[in-house]
């Protein structure tokens, strides 16, 4: 389940009003989430939650659900 907070950070960064983000949603399915923009989203998530990812943690993410899990682990949820 994607939290409203994470969803808001991603959609704001992508300049999207709304988009149905599910656990299994992949970056390529979301308008504007391309390989160049990917890094901006990661930065925005790190900044918003005040966390720091390791490179390999980001590189192994397959979908938004994985990102949510990573954020949860880092924020201690």
């Amino acid at each position: 389940m994607i939290s409203q907070e994470l969803k808001k950070v991603i959609l704001t960064q992508l300049d999207l009003d709304d988009f149905d983000l599910q656990d299994e949603t992949m970056a390529t399915q979301v308008p504007g989430w391309d390989s160049l923009n990917h890094v901006n989203i990661i930065l925005a998530v790190e900044k918003h939650f005040n966390i720091k990812f390791k490179s390999y943690e980001v590189l192994r993410l397959k979908d938004v659900g994985d990102l949510q899990k990573l954020v949860d682990t880092k924020t201690g949820k």
Binding site: S35, H38, V39, I42, L43, S55, V58, L59
Partner: peptide, 9 residues
């Protein structure tokens, strides 16, 4: 590309 990009983010 991605590994370089992420480590230089």
């Amino acid at each position: 590309f991605k590994p370089i990009q992420i480590s230089l983010r």
